[in-house]
Nucleic acid binder design. Structure first.
Lengths: 173, 173
DNA sequence: CGGCAGTGGTTACAATTGAAACCAATCTTA
DNA sequence: TAAGATTGGTTTCAATTGTAACCACTGCCG
C-alpha cells in the first residue's frame, strides 16, 4: 500500500459519505506497464539488429546462446534453461536446423530425445553475435552507475521471485 | 546435466591473450532477457486477473485506465498516452464499445475524430479495477525496500531513455 | 472553388503466438 | 510382458499482433 501517492491530498480518512472515488491509476508510473514498455523497446531494437544481420529471431537466438555454452542439450533441456515453452523451442529449433545453424542427432540411449548442437556455421554466427549482444547490453548498462547496476540486479531478482510466486500460488485475491 | 566442453580445436591451452573464443553469453544475466522474462511473468499474471474478473485484455484495460483519468480523448490521443499503436487502440476501443464500457461520440469540430469516454458501467468497472491493479503493484513493490523503489524508478527512467535512443537514432553499429 | 498532402481511424491480410491434441518412445507396475 | 502413465517433441487450429493498404475528412495552396 505504499504506492507513492504524489497526489496533493491523500487523506484517506477524510472522505465522508461521498462516492468513494479511487485514486486514478497513473499508468506511466505503474510498474507492470513500465516494465512492459521498457522490455518491448529493448527487445524490438535487439530483434531488429539480429534479424538484420543474421536473419535470427529472438527465440532462435536464445536457443543458440544456450547451445553455445552448453552443448548436447535436448529440446526439453532448452525449455528448462530459457523459460521459453515447448512449442517455441520446437519452432526455433526447426528454423535453426533449416538454416544449418544447429545439428540434431538421435540420442541412442533414449530415442525420444534429440541432441542439439551448434554446427560449424552456427558456432561461427554465435561467435559474432555474442559481442553484438554484449554491445547492446553494455550500451544499456552504460546509462547506469556501478551502484545502480548492482541495485538493478538485486531488484530484478526480487521482483522475479515475487512474480514467480503469483504463478505458483495462484492470483492475488 | 552440464555437458562436457567439446571444443577441441579452439586452442584452449593457449591461455595467452590469444582470445579466439568470445566470452559465452550468460543468458540468465543478460539484461534484455531478464527484462523480457520478468515483464512477461508480471503481465501474464495480471492479464489473467483482469480477464478472469472483468473480461478485459491488457490493451483494453490500458485504454480504460487512461480514459478514467482523462475524459474526452480521441483514439489518437490514446496512442500518444499509451505507447500502443493505432491498430491496437482501435481494436481495444471497439471491444470496449461492444461491452458498453466506453462511449464514442462524434467530434463536431472535426468529423474524423471520435471522442471517447467511460460509460457509467465503464466507470464502475474502472473503479473496481484500479484497486486491483494497485494491489498487484503493491504486492510487487512489497518485495522491495523504500530505497530500492526509488532506485528502480530512476533506473527505469534511464534505461527507457537509452532504449528510446536506439529507436530514434537507429541501431548500434 | 479544385486538387492534393496530411490526419484520424478502420479493414484486410500475413506472421507470431499459445493451447491443446497428438504420436512415438520409455518407464512403471503388476 | 502387457497396460497405463509419463515424457519428448511436433502438429494443428484459433487467437493475437503487426504491416500495409485503405476510406473519409480536413487544411492548405494555387
Amino acid at each position: 500500500m505504499t504506492t507513492d501517492n504524489t497526489q496533493s491530498e491523500t487523506s484517506d480518512l477524510a472522505n465522508p459519505s461521498e462516492a468513494v472515488r479511487p485514486d486514478d491509476l497513473r499508468l506511466e508510473k505503474f510498474l507492470p506497464y513500465r516494465l512492459s514498455v521498457l522490455s518491448n523497446r529493448v527487445s524490438n531494437a535487439i530483434a531488429d539488429a539480429y534479424s538484420a544481420r543474421f536473419d535470427l529471431t529472438i527465440p532462435a537466438w536464445r536457443v543458440m546462446a544456450i547451445l553455445g555454452r552448453f552443448p548436447n542439450l535436448s529440446a526439453a533441456d532448452l525449455v528448462e534453461q530459457t523459460a521459453m515453452d515447448k512449442v517455441a523451442i520446437s519452432r526455433a529449433v526447426s528454423i535453426l536446423i533449416k538454416n544449418d545453424y544447429i545439428t540434431r542427432s538421435e540420442d541412442l540411449a533414449d530415442r525420444r530425445r534429440q541432441v542439439l548442437n551448434l554446427s560449424e556455421l552456427g558456432r561461427d554466427v554465435y561467435e559474432r553475435i555474442v559481442p553484438l549482444a554484449q554491445q547492446y547490453e553494455n550500451d544499456l548498462m552504460g546509462s547506469l552507475s556501478t551502484d545502480e547496476r548492482r541495485q538493478l540486479d538485486s531488484i530484478i531478482e526480487k521482483l522475479m521471485a515475487r512474480a514467480q510466486d503469483w504463478a505458483n500460488r495462484g492470483l492475488i485475491d
